[in-house]
Design a binder for these strands. Sequence first.
DNA 1: TTGAAAGTTTGGTCGTACCAAGGAGCCATC
DNA 2: GATGGCTCCTTGGTACGACCAAACTTTCAA
Lengths: 245, 245
Amino acid sequence: MSDQERQKAADPHVSSGRAADSIVARIQQQILSGELEDKAALPSERDLMERFAASRTVVREAVATLASRGLIDAKPRFRPIIRKPGYDTALNSIGNIVELLLKETGGVAALFESRVFVERGLVRDAATSAGREDIARLKEALAANRDAIGDSQRFFSTDVAFHGVLYEIPRNPIFPTVHSAYASWLSPHWSRMLRSPERNQVNYLSHEAIYTAILERDPDAAEAALVTHLRTAWEHVRETFGLEH
Amino acid sequence: MSDQERQKAADPHVSSGRAADSIVARIQQQILSGELEDKAALPSERDLMERFAASRTVVREAVATLASRGLIDAKPRFRPIIRKPGYDTALNSIGNIVELLLKETGGVAALFESRVFVERGLVRDAATSAGREDIARLKEALAANRDAIGDSQRFFSTDVAFHGVLYEIPRNPIFPTVHSAYASWLSPHWSRMLRSPERNQVNYLSHEAIYTAILERDPDAAEAALVTHLRTAWEHVRETFGLEH
DNA sequence: TTGAAAGTTTGGTCGTACCAAGGAGCCATC
DNA sequence: GATGGCTCCTTGGTACGACCAAACTTTCAA
């Protein structure tokens, strides 16, 4: 059987371009259906080429596509690990491009602005409808933040965590994802900001003000406190490596 | 020169995994720097393999990666077209995964909820700080929407456009992108909704109420009108193919 | 029991070959 | 001279086989 004969016999289905796409679709479906277990390793490429009666070329292309979609985690010399998609997967797959966009003028500023926008809504809602449990978690995060004032490193992470609680209050899985997005895309810029216990103290007080306003069920005050907080922080970031906007 | 000899001589640089990555990086940089012009065709694969002194296998993998990142537009049998990244590119590259997520229980609901959240903030801000020009555009979009009440097809698009104006008011390129995202991911579900001039009429009135509230600089009223509007629409969508949530 | 050596698998890369569809050039016909 | 084919070339899609190096397994001796 010559090459061309084999090729003809291989896949008499639709003429539409890539054969790899077909395999991608099938593997994807197997991942979603759980036929291929989460966190397990994908079968070897030579194995896959038998299962799908395709050449390794095609299989490899399919695997690459799957990897780019985030459905499998393909480190250089290791077997690809299957990963059921979650919102974080989506975030991951968009990361590359966003990083490029942030390099453009105003990119970081635009992103930060959108964050302010989102968190304004978040604190308003928190002030309106945060439950007992939400308040408790906020309080906890606030305390952790206060305890870290002396340690800028730890202050930063508790800072992020405090804001993170805000994103969890709506009980919508999209929001925590958005929070991670902001954290991962903005923090490279944030981390350059000069830090000191004095500044941490100021930031802590801002957090406290936000918390208090939420506790007092005052959306306007909460929003105002949040805006003040973030704008101030932004100023600090800007002056640290003043170029944006 | 045997295969292995050639291989050894090829690229003595960093040992880090894939050679394709290196090519991806270089091409990407060339695209960003404008060295490879936007909307022009990428050189042929056989050409690229000479330029980068790599096998076609590697070149193809690089091209595939670039395509998945949205930096080039690779249709099946055509030369890939170079495309400078914009926010829409990012949106595009995330589309696949999101579609999967939407199939999960509550996925659409979660997305819709986030939309309500965003638009609530949007109308509040519009009511607070929309400029003369913004108002004019809103008015225009509203008029177009009214004129389309009798034509459900056109009503839908003017509906989307009206909401779209809201996203443009902040003058932040991220927001229109978010709007496109909502539009493209939600509309498949929306389009199944039963439509009629009567319903269109109701929706139009909602739009009008939002517009009026913005005009009167009343954030609370605007937000309330928006929420009522979207919640009602959501009910209609739900009852049409009642499963979500 | 354990740790190192030997053997096997597997991903990464290369080269070559063929097909089919797009595209360029050529020619006869109108 | 314009137009509709009809070649021939280019190019992307796919296949196969080979080889390396790193990862994984098994083996076996201390």
